[in-house]
Amino acid sequence: MRLLLMGPPGSGKGTQATRIAAGLGIPAISTGDIFRANVADATPLGRVAREYMDAGEYVPDQVTNAMVRDRLAHPDCEPGFLLDGYPRTLQQVHELDSFLDEGTNRLDAVVELVVDRDVLVDRLLLRARSEGRADDTLDVIRRRQEVYAEQTAPLTAEYAARGLLHAVDGDGQVELVSERITGLLAGLGATSTR
């Protein structure tokens, strides 16, 4: 399966991405991991990305798009993949469409983890305290939730219009949420490798 997993900060998206990808035997691909790998390997794209990152700037879409395109061309992505953190803009959605079309692939599903905003805020405050993140204040956490909602609304609308968007309740224990996602994906034809 070719999947995109979306969810606001605190939804458990990273944890679920790893679990679901392992269960399906496909790579979980996050833009953060792609950036780190390219920078560590000093690839041409990694050197460009590092310049922006060292300056505290966002890495431009064209660099991000090129890194994702390159990663999806690796042989381990042939049976499928799970994208985490990309696309983040409508422009990136269309760019993803263009390079998936080159390989006659399309996304099979977009899974959005839905969690009540107050639950998310509580989770992130607890994590901030346990990890000593003094800069993760209530106001900062609430603002991140607002920014996520504003930025992803066009993406969820686009994928809903295509019939690809599937909302999954992301509240509850990790295993329970994993079971919900696995059940959804099984209904869409995914088979577990476990």
Results as ranks from 00 to 15, higher is better:
L3Q: 08
L4P: 09
M6G: 02
P9E: 09
P9N: 06
G14Q: 02
R19K: 14
I20C: 01
L24R: 02
P27H: 10
I29T: 03
S30P: 08
T31M: 11
D33L: 02
I34E: 04
A37T: 13
T43H: 02
P44F: 05
V48M: 12
V48D: 09
M53K: 08
P60D: 10
P60W: 04
D61M: 12
V63Y: 04
V63I: 15
T64C: 09
V68H: 07
V68C: 09
A73V: 07
P75I: 05
L83Y: 04
D84F: 12
D84N: 10
D84S: 09
L90N: 04
Q92V: 09
Q92G: 10
H94Y: 14
H94N: 15
D97Y: 08
T104H: 15
R106P: 08
R106A: 15
L107V: 08
L107W: 10
D108S: 13
E112Q: 14
D118K: 09
D118S: 13
V119H: 00
D122Q: 14
S130Q: 15
A134H: 12
D135Y: 07
D135N: 11
D136L: 09
T137N: 03
L138W: 00
L138R: 13
V140F: 11
I141S: 00
I141C: 01
I141F: 04
R142L: 04
R143E: 14
R144Y: 04
Y148T: 02
A149D: 15
T152R: 04
A153F: 05
L155K: 05
T156D: 06
R162L: 14
H166V: 06
V168Q: 03
G170D: 00
G170W: 00
D171F: 06
G172V: 05
Q173S: 13
E175K: 01
V177A: 00
E179K: 10
I181R: 02
T182A: 11
L184P: 11
A186C: 11
A190Q: 08
